[in-house]
């Protein structure tokens, strides 16, 4: 069970939230090729470790926001608003510390 700290409502169970996936890069210009569009639309970093992702508190305030979470330990390192710069997170990757499993 994830306990997600909504910036508006505080820490709540994951069941109240909707997942929005990894935060993608910026939208490419319209004149770039298919390769750049395929990369933007479909390719993902899908990291084993820290991921920047979108969540929406759909059964609460309805607000979208960003979470920095470790995909191995599920520990949430930071929460920040849409449009805000990415916070600096301590990169001592704990996934590596427990053998990468």
């Amino acid at each position: 069970m994830l306990r997600i700290p909504c910036p508006c409502c505080g820490e709540r169970d994951e069941a109240e939230f909707r997942y929005g996936g990894e935060v993608p890069g910026s939208i490419p210009q319209t004149d770039v090729g298919d390769e750049a569009w395929a990369d933007y639309l479909f390719a993902r970093d899908n990291p084993k470790g820290l991921v920047h992702e979108r969540w929406c508190h759909s059964h609460g305030c309805g607000q979208w926001f960003h979470v920095v979470r470790d995909t191995v330990t599920h520990r949430i390192h930071a929460v920040y608003g849409v449009g805000e710069p990415r916070p600096v997170v301590d990169c001592s990757n704990e996934s590596q510390a427990d053998g990468g499993r």
């Binding site: 996936g21 990894e22 395929a38 990369d39 479909f42 390719a43 993902r44 970093d45 899908n46 990291p47 084993k48 995909t71």
Partner: peptide, 18 residues
């Protein structure tokens, strides 16, 4: 499930979510 991890080591990204 680790396809993305190995692809990253080879220098490319794949359209996969684990």
């Amino acid at each position: 499930g680790h396809t993305s991890v190995l692809a990253a080591k080879a220098g490319f990204r794949v359209p996969i979510t684990s």
